[in-house]
């Protein structure tokens, strides 16, 4: 228990630092950045402590916000995907999730990709919609969501493959 808390705290700090020091400065084609930190919310262990999970997601988003001077956009996006995750889990993994025996390292890879895609898209849409904060620029929001999501999803998949523990 104690060990896993320590390991998740370490992951939290490393992901925040990687995000604010490296990934926020990529600016591919002008303004496309991957937001790798969502992988922490995506792969957080599934258990009954939903309140803790929501709070941790909020704090993670807010930390990114403080570093990038962006108000509360990351916090809002992060807490929203944390809130709707059970629905998406049920949609993607179905019966495995219902039995409560789901472990991310031995789920079907195709289902995992779909799970990543749905949550990353929702996260990025909320993020850019709040950042732009103007209904007139909805096309721009969708465009940014699309490009950044592709970048984020690829990076998340690569990271989850590279750092998954072999059993």
């Amino acid at each position: 228990m104690n060990n896993s808390v320590l390991s998740y705290s370490l992951q939290f700090i490393v992901l925040v630092l990687v995000q604010v020091l490296i990934l926020n400065h990529i600016n591919f084609l002008g303004h496309i950045n991957p937001y790798l930190y969502v992988i922490f919310i995506l792969l957080f262990p599934i258990n009954d402590k939903r309140l803790t999970y929501l709070l941790i997601s909020f704090v993670l988003g807010l930390t990114i916000d403080i570093f990038s001077d962006s108000g509360g956009v990351h916090a809002a996006a992060a807490v929203s995907i944390a809130f709707i995750r059970p629905v998406v889990l049920k949609f993607c993994f179905g019966s495995v999730y219902d039995h409560g025996t789901i472990k991310f390292k031995n789920v079907d890879f195709g289902a995992k990709i779909i799970y990543f895609i749905i949550l990353v898209f929702i996260h990025h849409f909320i993020l850019f919609a709040l950042e732009t904060f103007n209904i007139k620029d909805i096309i721009l929001v969708i465009q940014k969501t699309l490009f950044s999501s592709i970048f984020t999803i690829i990076l998340c998949l690569v990271t989850s493959i590279l750092f998954s523990k072999k059993t």
Partner: peptide, 21 residues
């Protein structure tokens, strides 16, 4: 409690967002 906590956190985040604008 989950829904209420979510709404509270979202509210705080949106307040911060509006302030930043």
């Amino acid at each position: 409690k989950t829904n209420l906590l979510y709404l509270l956190l979202l509210f705080i985040a949106v307040i911060f967002t509006i302030q930043s604008h």
